[in-house]
Amino acid sequence: MVSQMTRFETSSEIDAMAALWAARLDRGPLTELDQASLDCWLEGDVRRLGALARAQAMLAAISLSASTGETAFLGSVEEPEAPPGTPEASPETSKVVSILPHLVSRRRLIQAGTATALAASFGALALLPIGTSSYTTARGEVRLLPLADGSVVTMNTDSHIRVNFSKANRTIYLDKGEVLFDVAKSPQRPFLVKAGMAKVQAVGTAFSVRRTGVTPVEVMVREGLVKVAAPQGHKQSMMVGANMKAVADASGDITAKRMSNEEMERMLAWREGKIAFSETSLRDAAHEFNRYNKVKIEVGNGAIANRTVTGMFSANDPQGFAHAAALTLDLKVQEKSGQIIFSTK
């Protein structure tokens, strides 16, 4: 039993000391003197060891969460975004490439560590040399791009990125579109994604960044930890964990919300050439389809646009979607001169 004196030390006071000791232990090996005082402190009350264990577990929890995928973050933005190049899709990339990244466990992709193995398994995919290279996807194209460091980039339709690798940094400019990053762990070489006013920094994680012009920059984190920051706004930065979506709007405000696994998978259905809706307005659904296809869906601004649809559709089949939606919503649909137009019956 502890002495009367120490008994009155509150658990809160003990927690405070324990946190300091955990920080000291985290710094490195203790000096003899430190070790002696730690031993002495611990002996005084059994609760102290408990508090220290808890403090050290707290630190371990952070590493643990971080290493289940590692970390992405939209770091502070010090400099304006590099001039966005928004080249048109080049003709040779206009074919639809259907690659199914889910066939290979993403973790194994990351752990494979070498792009060589990946390039071999996916065929003629070029390794990225040190220096800047640009990559573009055409409408309807999904492209899997293994990077030289072992990271894998999956580009959605109508996207453009520039990749700049140096010995010290891995930087990717997302000029437009939507991209999923599976980042290979390399603590000494930060992985940066610059998407307009927002910057994402990662060590190794899985997250997607979307910058389509209509919506603000969106970052969804599948695994790991994310810090979101924008140049101005009330809230300078925000940590965002797995299964969360952060939205940085034009004014620099950042909001984050939790997503269910289901919702997250739905948002990433594009990797399999699908678009998934859940109570989505026809207006938003049309906009989504129009990102992928030359044929445009037109819903106008009336009541029709506010009707909602739910389901999973092939991204490259706007007609199929339109007919299914028309059937469910009891609408009429007709196609003329590259437009699909909804109207009431």
Partner: peptide
């Protein structure tokens, strides 16, 4: 006592 072993800290964290 040198604080917690790393594996125990991880176990507690999990």
């Amino acid at each position: 006592m040198r604080g917690l072993s790393n594996s125990r800290a991880v176990w507690l964290a999990q």
